[in-house]
């Protein structure tokens, strides 16, 4: 088999909003950069997202939300990630997350927040540079 380690990414959409245009573009860009991308589909609960990340043993989780519910849902997701011991997973987020919420989101363990208008190449580069080497 291929000896090269593949980066596995979960792109997840928590919350009830259905704006998946950004999430899908990110998924596609990461795939085109050679990564294995799992997309959850819409309206995933924090439990479903973290359990999926665990079973798929992903290196990276990208969360996309535009409904404003990040202040409720992100802390829950990060809590579950810790509970399940997925400490080496890189978590980033995108969507509509006001500037003033960013410090709080970073405090709970989300490594980076990408606002609207972020070029996909920035994201690809970010993931490649920040993914932790597992095993």
């Amino acid at each position: 088999m291929n000896q090269e380690r593949k980066i596995r990414v979960l792109i997840a959409k928590p919350g009830l909003d259905s704006h998946d245009r950004g999430a899908k573009i990110v998924a596609r860009a990461l795939r085109d950069a050679g990564m294995e991308v799992i997309y959850t589909g819409l309206r995933q609960t924090p439990e479903q997202i973290v359990e999926t990340a665990l079973q798929e043993d992903v290196d990276v989780i990208g969360l996309s939300i535009l409904s404003g519910a990040h202040t409720t849902l992100f802390p829950r997701i990060m809590e579950l990630i810790k509970e399940k011991g997925l400490n080496d997973v890189l978590v980033f987020a995108g969507g509509i997350i006001p500037e003033e919420d960013v410090p709080e989101m970073k405090k709970i363990g989300i490594k980076e927040i990408f606002g609207p208008g972020t070029p996909t190449e920035t994201l690809v580069k970010y993931v490649k540079e920040n993914v932790k080497k597992k095993i």
């Binding site: 919350g15 009830l16 909003d17 519910a69 849902l73």
Partner: peptide, 18 residues
């Protein structure tokens, strides 16, 4: 919009937001 009452578990964090 998605046919849930405000106290449904899936509504958590979404009530009155958008």
């Amino acid at each position: 919009i998605t046919g849930y009452d405000s106290d449904h578990p899936k509504a958590q964090g979404e009530v009155g937001r958008c």
